[in-house]
Design a protein around this nucleic acid. Sequence first.
DNA 1: AATTATCTACCTATCGATAGGCAGATTTGA
DNA 2: TCAAATCTGCCTATCGATAGGTAGATAATT
Lengths: 181, 181
Amino acid sequence: MADDDMRTRILDAAEQRAREGGYHGFSFREVAADVGIKSASVHYHFPTKTALATALAERYTERSLEVIGTPETPLQAFDRVSELFRHSAAVERKMCLCGLFGAERDGLPPEVAKATQSYFTRLIAAIQAPSVRGEAPFHAETILSTLEGALLVARAIHDLSVFDRVVTDLRRAYENQKRPT
Amino acid sequence: MADDDMRTRILDAAEQRAREGGYHGFSFREVAADVGIKSASVHYHFPTKTALATALAERYTERSLEVIGTPETPLQAFDRVSELFRHSAAVERKMCLCGLFGAERDGLPPEVAKATQSYFTRLIAAIQAPSVRGEAPFHAETILSTLEGALLVARAIHDLSVFDRVVTDLRRAYENQKRPT
DNA sequence: AATTATCTACCTATCGATAGGCAGATTTGA
DNA sequence: TCAAATCTGCCTATCGATAGGTAGATAATT
C-alpha cells in the first residue's frame, strides 16, 4: 500500500510539487513535510536540489519510455504517446514534468537541463523508431510538440476538452496525410 | 533611444527574467539591479509580485494580439501566429512568457493564472476569427498548442530547426486538409 | 559494533514586503 | 508672486519568512 522506500516517496512527493510550480516552485521543506521527515533528512537521499531534480527527470523519462514501449507502426506510436499525455491531463491532472522543466530551461541548473533534454531526444527517438520501415506523415518532433503544447494550453485555460480536440485534429491529419517527402 | 519610463524598463527587465525561469525564477532584486534601482523602488511601481507578473502577462497578451491583427483567412492566421512564435524562438531566443506561466499554472497566484488564461483564450479567438467565413482544417487551439509546444521542445533540445520542421509539417497538413466536419 | 537513516540545531543568503526619509518637481492658495 | 502643501520617484534600513545546505548527535537496523 504505502511506498516502502523513502527515496521513492521523496521522489513521488517532489514530482508532484515540481509538476505544479516547476524547479523554483518547490522546496526541500515542502517535500520533507509531505513525506513526514525533516528537510535535512532529504539531503541524505539527495545531496542537492540539482541532484533531486535530475533524478526526477530521469525517472520520469524512464517511465514515459516504458509506456511508449516499441510501437510497430507510426500510428501506433502516435496513439501510445497521445495516451501518455492524455493520462497526464485527465488522470494525474498535472503538467508533464519535463515539459515544465523544458519551459524553464534557461533558469535550470545545467545538469537538470541536460536530463530534460534527454527526455525529449529519447522520446522523439522512440516515436520515430517505427518509421524506419514505412513513412510517417509527421516528424516525431511534431507529435511530441503538439501533445506537449495541447497539455499546456488545455490546462492553462482549464478546459481539458481542448486536449482532445487537438489530438483529434492531429490524428485525422495523420491518417489522411500521405508520405511527406 | 533609452527607455524613458522606469515602469516600462522594469516590465522589460522582468519579462526577460520571467521568460527564463518563470514566476518563481525571478526576483525584485534581480529586476531592480537590471534597471539600476533598488528593489524597494520596484514596489513603488508594482506593489506586489503578483501585480508585476499580472502586468507582464497582460502586456504580453496585447503585444501578441497586435502582431496577429485581424487575419482575413485561416491560413493567414496560421502564418501570423507561426511568425510570432518563430520570432520568439529565433530572435528573442526566449520561451513564450504565457507559455511558461501556463506550464506553472498550479504554482501561480490566482490573479496571474487568470491573466495567463486570458492570453490563451484571446489568442485562440483571434486565430479562430477568420474561420467564421470559410472552414478551417484545424481548430484554433490546435494551431496555438502546436506552436507553443514546438517552441518549448525546440528550446529544450537546443535545436531550433525542430521548430521549423514542426511548422512545416503542420502547414502542409493545413493546406492539404479539407473541411474537418 | 557498524552501518543506515533520521534527528536537532544552526548557518548564510535571499525572498517579498514595509517604514520612513528626502530631493526635486508640481500644484495650490492667499 | 511667493510660499506652503502635495506629489513623484527614488533611497536606506529593516522586517519576518524561507531558501538550500551543513555538522554532529541520536536512533534504528543488521
